[in-house]
């Protein structure tokens, strides 16, 4: 184990870890938006909208995220979409995780007892009111933990953007493996930082989950 080397390169890894955090935050935010839209579409009253929602979820969950990323970044310019690598990474991965989050949210919404919505309507609330005031608050509570699983997967999935040369943690590790021939040390550094990010995020999700459960 070459500790001297680790001490020399770790500042670069910290910098790269910040990019990984930034990517994680942005893709999760975009994912939540896409997920909410996707879930809403799949639960819509209109068959056409339901079809669109199902097509979105099915395509993005049915093909590798890496291919989606390449399609957007390398194929995009051919259809007039020219993005820098970081933006392409955020958009590509955000839309991808959105498809998974849509299923999580839909699952939580339909698992709130049907009777809840019906009871609210009987009490004179409109369909929208019943959803917003009765079903959604209960579903929110149910979806925090599974969304946490999605977020955990997403933090690790940010490593994929190294393949379109965004200088995040995995790209940095790869570059230093290439120049130092010390793969284990570099893996240890990068791995430790990923674990730190994931552990802190996991604690945050657990805290949020406990808080809403107490209400």
């Amino acid at each position: 184990m070459d500790t001297e080397l680790i001490l020399k390169v770790y500042p670069y890894f910290l910098e790269a870890a910040l990019i990984t955090v930034e990517l994680s935050v942005l893709t999760v935010l975009l994912g939540l938006i896409c997920g909410a839209l996707g879930a809403a579409a799949r639960l819509s009253r209109f068959a056409e909208v339901r079809f669109l929602g199902a097509a979105y979820v099915s395509f993005f969950r049915g093909t590798p995220a890496l291919i989606q990323l390449f399609l957007l970044y390398f194929g995009g310019p051919q259809i007039g979409i020219q993005l820098d690598a970081f933006t392409a990474g955020v958009i590509g991965l955000g839309i991808n995780i959105g498809a998974y989050m849509a299923e999580t949210m839909r699952g939580a919404i339909i698992s709130v007892d049907r009777g809840q919505g019906e009871a609210a309507r009987t009490l004179g609330l409109s369909r929208a009111q019943a959803f917003r005031k009765v079903v959604l608050p209960q579903a929110m509570r149910l979806m925090i933990r599974p969304l946490g699983v999605n977020i955990n997967a997403q933090i690790k999935a940010t490593a994929l953007v190294s393949a379109i040369s965004v200088v995040e943690l995995t790209y940095t590790a790869q570059r230093y493996i290439g120049s130092t021939y010390k793969p284990f040390e570099m893996f240890l550094l990068a791995g430790a930082l990923y674990l730190a990010i994931i552990t802190v995020t996991g604690k945050g999700v657990a805290f949020l989950d406990r808080k809403v459960r107490l209400q």
Binding site: T158, A173, P183, T199
Partner: peptide, 22 residues
């Protein structure tokens, strides 16, 4: 197990392919 679940698969593949050579 904790290590495997907390780090990206891509990084693990690099470690196995390039790291074991070390």
């Amino acid at each position: 197990s904790w290590l495997f679940m907390g780090t990206p698969l891509l990084l693990q593949l690099f470690l196995i392919y390039f790291g074991l050579v070390q």
